[in-house]
Design a protein around this nucleic acid. Structure first.
Lengths: 346, 346
DNA sequence: TTGAAAGCGCTAACAC
DNA sequence: GTGTTAGCGCTTTCAA
């Protein structure tokens, strides 16, 4: 592969200095029209493309968002990452930024830290997604002065912001919805303890149940680990033991799907005998039978808003470091009312 | 944000030249152990991180795959891109490469060409996905000497390779399967004409039908544009007109889902009265009712193999420039046999 | 074993 | 309007 032409080559051909070429190409006004035209023509002719790497080296300015994320794994059944990435790119394009992804998994975290990545690539700031609160490297980022926005993890420091839906409110809304349908004995299938969203959703469930004086029992809270299989197995164990439970509210759609499968196997009709609800509104949720009543999040918007906030922080603008994106309760067919009829499986 | 330490700072503190620091950090043997230890200690202490940008500028070597893709859109219902990206990263990590994504859409294509992107970022080579054959910029890449691997588009030139499943064989296999189930009047719902995979799948359908002397009728070929809605509408029109058709083979799962919805609305039972099959095995396919019989592709592997081939081409290895990844017919519940019973809707 | 000097491709004072 | 010079952070001959 022959070496791409550089600015010197253009200068040589145009019979001017490289400075003049640089000025012409960057649209400076102090360049003779004639000269500029000649330079442009030559640029075109030899297919010259400025080397962005060299440019950023000298200007010391970076126009690149880092996107550090965990959970980019083979066989994922949702499009959360994709949506988020898409949102980040959407904003990045608006402001002429690039996006540099850095997928991490437990295995590789030892090899390279986030900071190392950020500095190596001269990033203007980073967006973190799916990184655990107790992650060793998270701290490193927070404590550095690198602008940083977290998705789904609360934070509000000097140069650190965060964006997510109001998980607690959304969770309370879902619980209230189930309550309003006449359910009292509502089980809650929780996600991972280490995830901030899990505790928030749990809080929402608890406060809504408490507000309605509904039974708040420890054994009604299952641990689904955000995993379809685990939720399935937990439900398989739990449901026969608790025929008085008429609704299972799950902290993710995938877990809800696992619970529905367990119900089907146990001969429990959803939603007639058991209401099941999810969280996230992943694409599958609309296609299950029955289709899933769930909380819709806009993951694209999360990414978009995270990028926007990061940009503002980078620019030194004084903006709120906490952004709540909207959520919506999507009433589909996996949850029903028990008014007037007894759905009890006893 | 205070400027990160550079190599000069390390040299100053260690009381050596930057040359020595560079050598120590890059593991050259001709450095005194004492000196090396001191340098390492200081590096650690002040948190020095080498600037990869500057390094690649001087070494003129790039360890970065470009991933140019279209179709990273909001609200996508499949995880194809995600899987592919994941596969590319998996290989990239094995060989210590980075990945630089460049999502394109029709709107922005005018602004920056692929070549421009590749050169600006000093990419070692690029992987193209979802780029149309007739794309103006594709040609630019093919005709350049930049190493390049296309996913789902046949190509085999000097520095250009391609990877995909054997679409024609897979399509023929699906058609044969339907034939083996006793179907004769099989409709084919095609994707986009501009996509190479569409024509290949069409060819597979045609050759299998021909091989079985089954009726090959122009009006049995619908245009679904790889779109659920369009396929739905086409099926809504087509099915009542053709009660003799007992199977609809769709070139994508999403289109199959659209067709199933149309069938449901028309009161046609799937698979009893109409067999419907898809292509791709997206996550949703396993959760529809009935679950979708389809051709499973491994999109992760496509990405992984594309990266591997690109790497080999970059290294100048003499490898085949055409890689077929495996596919598999997944027999689920949307297609059935008509042996012995008449499923006709007449 | 180490350092001085040149240079990767580019921009930006500062002169002319 | 244009060129000269210096330098971004790093690697790499070549000498010492």
């Amino acid at each position: 592969m022959n070496k791409p032409a550089n600015i010197r080559e253009v200068a040589r051909r145009a019979g001017v200095s490289i400075t003049t070429v640089s000025r012409a190409l960057n649209g400076y006004p102090d360049v003779n029209e004639e000269t500029r035209k000649r330079i442009m023509a030559i640029t075109e002719e030899i297919g010259y493309i400025p080397n962005a790497v060299a440019k950023s080296l000298v200007t010391q300015e970076s126009r690149s968002f880092g996107f550090i994320l965990s959970g980019l794994i083979r066989g994922s059944k949702h499009t959360i990452i994709q949506e988020c990435l898409c949102g980040i790119y959407a904003f990045a394009r608006e402001v002429g930024y690039e996006v540099t992804m850095f997928p991490v998994d437990s295995a590789m975290q030892l090899k390279k830290s986030y900071m190392q990545f950020s500095r190596e690539h001269n990033l203007a700031g980073v967006i973190l997604q799916g990184i655990r609160t107790d992650d060793e490297y998270s701290r490193e980022v927070f404590s550095s002065d690198l602008p940083c926005v977290l998705i789904d993890i609360p934070a509000d420091r000097n140069r650190v912001g965060s964006v997510s839906i109001d998980n607690e409110a959304a969770s309370a809304a879902m619980t209230d919805y189930l309550l309003s349908q006449g359910h009292r004995n509502i089980a809650f299938v929780n996600g991972k303890e280490a995830a901030a969203v899990s505790t928030q959703r749990y809080e929402g469930y608890v406060s809504a149940m408490r507000g309605a004086s509904a039974p708040l029992r420890w054994d009604y809270v299952l641990n689904g680990e955000f995993d379809e299989e685990i939720a399935y197995r937990e439900a398989l164990r739990f449901l026969p033991e608790h025929p008085e439970v008429t609704a299972a509210y799950c902290a993710s759609d995938l877990m809800a799907i696992g619970v529905m499968r367990a119900a089907a196997e146990l001969g429990i009709a959803v939603p007639e005998q058991l209401s099941v609800t999810g969280f996230d509104d992943i694409p599958i949720a609309a296609y299950t039978t029955p289709s899933l009543t769930t909380i819709q999040q806009d993951f694209f918007l999360n990414g978009y808003e995270a990028a926007r906030m990061l940009y503002d922080i980078i620019q030194g603008k004084d903006v709120p470091h906490r952004k709540k994106t909207p959520h919506r309760l999507l009433e589909r067919n996996s949850a029903g009312s028990i008014q007037g009829g007894s759905p009890l499986r006893t």
